[in-house]
Every structure is written in C-alpha cells, then in structure tokens.
Design a protein around this nucleic acid. Structure first.
Lengths: 184, 184
DNA sequence: ATCGTTTCGCAGTGACCACTACAAATGACT
DNA sequence: AGTCATTTGTAGTGGTCACTGCGAAACGAT
C-alpha cells in the first residue's frame, strides 16, 4: 500500500498550514499535529527549519505565478494594460490568503530575516522577468514595464490587505485599472 | 538630577532597536540590554508586550507621516502629482529602514497577528485621510486620489525593498513618477 | 531472509520568550 | 521625616521552539 507520507504530501500540508495560520505559525510540531503525523517524520524530510521554509516559499511563488498566468493569455502593450488584465483575477477573496502569505514573507525579508531575505527578492525578480514575457517591444522596455506593473499590483494588493477591498477598488479605479463598476 | 529614564526615552530606544533589528527582535530582554537597563523597568513602563509594540507602531506611523510631510507643502491636483512630489524624498537610502519596519508590520498584520492587524490598517487609513488634505477637489475625489497615491507609493517602496533601488527607479520612471535622470 | 527506507515513540537539550512575585534600594517632593 | 514613584536584584513560572539520540517497529524490494 505504500508508505503513508511522501515528501510532497508533507510539503502540501505545510503550504496549507501556512495559508491558514501564517508562516510564523509554521513549526515542526504544529505541522505534524495538523497532519496527524509524528514530528520526527517532518524533520526526517526537512532536516532544518530553513529547508522547510525555503520549499514552502518556492511553492508560494509557483502558486502566485499560476494565479497570474491564469489571467494572461495574449501579450499586452504596456504596464497599464497588464495590470488591467490581471487585477480582476487577483482582487478576489479567494486569492487573498496567497497574498497575505506573500506580504508576510516580504515583511520578514524586509526585516532581514533569513531565508526570506535571500529568497523573496528572487521570487520578485522572477515574476518581473516572467511578466516581461507577456509584453511587446524591445527587451529592456519589457523589463521596466513589467517592473512597473509589479509595483502597481503589489501596491494595490497591499492596500487591499491593509485597507480593505473597497479602498483598494477605489484606488484601482483612479489608477485606470478598474472600470466604474466594482467586481469584488 | 531626575530619574535615569523616562518612558519617552525607553520608547525612543525601542524605536531605534526596532529600526536596527526589526520588530521580531524587539523583546524586553534585548531592549533592556541595549539600553543598559534592567528589564524590569521596561516592563514597569510597558506592562505587556502589546503595550510596547502598540506605542512603537504609533511612533513608526508618526515618523512616516513626518517624512511624507517634509516633501509636501503646496496642494496637488491628483495622485500622479502627489507621488511625483513625494517619491524623491521616500526613495532615499536613509528612509529605507523606516519602510522596512512598516512592511514588517504590514506583513504581520496580513498574517493576522495582533496587535498588528488592529493597528496597521488604522495607520494606513490615517495616511490616506492625511494625504487627502493635500489634494484639491471635492472630498470624495480627494480620498480616492489619496488611496491611489498610497497604493502607488507602497508598491514602489515594496519593490525597492525587495527588488532593489534600481528596479524600483526604472518602474518609477515607467509610471511617470521619475524623470529620465536617476536620483538614488 | 535481508537490506534499506520510512515511520513513530520517548525523551531530552539548550535557548528564548512574556510575565510574575517579592524585596530592597534610590530619588523626588512635601 | 515621611510618602510616593522610580529602579534594580534575585529568582522564578510556564510555555514554545529547533533540534538531537536512540531504539523499534513497519514496509518495499530483491
């Protein structure tokens, strides 16, 4: 019947736990209890806390990229068009936990805590490069347009997390991201 | 000659410690050792950790508002003009620790941790109202323009923290916030 | 049957944390 | 002199945490 748990299953459980309780509550003991598993098996697969956190962060990054990719099909001309295309998908309540986790990781990175400081900037630059692939024009222009789009998206999403969905929507409308009709 | 320490002095020391080491490293013991003081006196003035954190966050908010106020004198027309006026002051290396602290607090708030979840949104809405005072036009328009400006500023500053100053500057240029000449 | 991998239990380490109880100084003020 | 606020010491509580050692199972594959 196979072993009870693979590394991937435990990692998925860690992702879910992080979404539910935040990165700061992600400990060996809590995760093991949540999975109904001995904490020894968690340590068996993730020998140090950094190992666990790092793989969780990579998983968060992939989920975010997948969320973005779901809203982008055709290439766009500039950052404004990119944000317009992406925002309706990102500004949905079911996406909020993903970004809450991202902002928590970003805050820990800003505070200089490892491994966040090393990993989160890599995620961000990765998204910028990836988003640049959906833009038209010369390469250098695509990168800066993508950086502008990421800045706008992050700002609006942070405002959504901290100021509420309505405040973020009014800001999005003023920035030409959203039409007169709200969607949240 | 007066007592050796007032509450304000300890609070200032806590601010400085938070800027240096981050909120997560701000503990009674570390703060006391940093100030060359018994940890009992810290607890004497700030009976619980929440008391300390709350007052530190208020102090951070005031510093941020002071930083913003230093770059705003005349009222502006819209969010674009506001961001253009404020950005050169915010995008300076000596302001980075303040925003690192803000993003750390924002991340903890996004993670649902108290007292951050209760306090940081109040700071953000306070800034929006305050920034609205520097805008022209009817009240409702001023609020949404201010929210748009805060979103752009936060996004650019987060990109600055996580993606580096150069990436943030190129994004700012694309967003019409910065001229062709860099300033960082 | 054997071997390596996986799973668990038990027990513990050393560190840090917020917070407390109690006593005793020291200073400021009246 | 007396009263109160301030400051420190000593010593502790109870909790969480990452991490470790050791042994014993259960399991898969050969």
């Amino acid at each position: 019947m196979g072993y009870r748990h693979t590394k991937e299953e435990i990692l998925e459980g860690a992702l879910a736990a992080a979404f539910d309780e935040g990165l700061s509550q992600l400990t060996f003991g809590r995760l093991a209890k949540r999975l109904g598993v001995s904490d020894r098996i968690v340590v068996y697969y993730f020998p140090t806390k950094d190992d666990l956190i790092s793989e969780v962060l990579v998983g968060v990054g992939m989920r975010l990229q997948a969320t973005l990719a779901a809203s982008l099909s055709e290439p766009v001309a500039d950052h404004a068009e990119l944000v317009r295309a992406v925002w309706p998908v990102l500004a949905r309540p079911d996406a909020d936990p993903v970004f809450a986790l991202f902002f928590e990781a970003g805050g820990l990175a800003a505070a200089g805590r490892e491994p966040y400081q090393a990993l989160v900037p890599m995620l961000v630059t990765g998204w910028i490069e990836w988003a640049g692939g959906f833009l038209r024009g010369p390469a250098s222009r695509r990168q800066s347009e993508a950086a502008a789009a990421i800045a706008m998206i992050d700002g609006l999403l942070l405002l959504r997390q901290l100021g509420g969905a309505e405040t973020a929507d009014t800001a999005a409308r003023r920035l030409g991201v959203l039409g007169r009709r709200s969607a949240t």
